[in-house]
């Protein structure tokens, strides 16, 4: 599903690589934790998958396509197969919950009838039924993140990318969000999630990929957050 082949990324303003010859493969349906200290290259890794950045060298393959060979106009098609969730939710403050989710469908030109049908469905999946007409500032952080997840999942993407999705949430709420991501994973979506939250990683016992200074330092199935075991 995702294949990195000796991928290095050096940002234009930087001399030290943000990612240094990283090779790894992620299979369809996997649940991946991406861990590592701040600045280790986790977000860079995720941006490369989205083709928000291009590798300086090496190849990134997503869903059978090598991204550097993907012409510009095909990038939207790639992104429609990938859902994204961020620490800061990225909701539109002047739209309701339902409108925020519908927005993602409107802008890719889905017909109204389709939107009317799938938005309530996905809001039920994420547990927001009854809150369709609230605005983001009328929701808790956890609820806002559920809206973001609903938006990311409404197209039933093959891959869900989550960059520190629980970074702004308290432990209890984080656990709920993790249950939701786990459920989405069980519905068949490959989930790649970066996190600093050791409790979550230790509890879930999924594959852990650790980066440090741009190097891949650990790739462990059913791993834990730190080395201390």
């Amino acid at each position: 599903m995702i294949l990195f082949d000796r991928v290095s990324k050096i940002y234009a303003s930087q001399t030290r690589p943000a990612l240094d010859a990283v090779s790894l493969e992620i299979e369809k349906g996997e649940f991946i934790f991406l861990v590592g200290p701040s600045g280790s290259g986790k977000s860079t890794f995720l941006r490369l998958v989205l083709r928000e950045e291009r590798p300086t060298s090496g190849q990134v393959w997503v869903a059978g396509k090598e991204l550097s060979k993907l012409s510009n106009w095909k990038i939207p098609g790639l992104r429609r197969q990938i859902g994204t969730v961020f620490q800061d939710f990225r909701l539109l403050p002047n739209k309701t919950v339902a409108e925020n989710v519908a927005f993602a469908l409107e802008v890719i030109g889905k017909p109204k009838s389709h939107i009317k049908r799938v938005v309530p469905e996905v809001l039920e999946v994420v547990g927001l039924e009854g809150k369709e007409l609230r605005r983001p500032d009328e929701l808790s952080g956890g609820e806002q993140q559920r809206v973001a997840i609903a938006r990311a999942f409404v197209n039933r993407p093959m891959i869900l990318i989550a960059d520190e999705p629980t970074g702004n949430l308290d432990p209890g709420t984080s656990a709920d969000i993790m249950k939701l991501l786990d459920r989405i994973n069980q519905l068949g979506t490959t989930v790649v999630m970066s996190t600093h939250d050791s409790n979550i990683v230790d509890q879930m016992r999924r594959r852990v990929i650790e980066l440090d200074g741009g190097h891949l330092v650990r790739d462990q199935s059913r791993g834990v957050y730190g080395y201390a075991q």
Partner: peptide, 17 residues
Amino acid sequence: RRETGIMRLVGASNFYI
């Protein structure tokens, strides 16, 4: 930029943005 950023992420075409 918030809207357009989201549009990009969810795969809206350049034309649509």
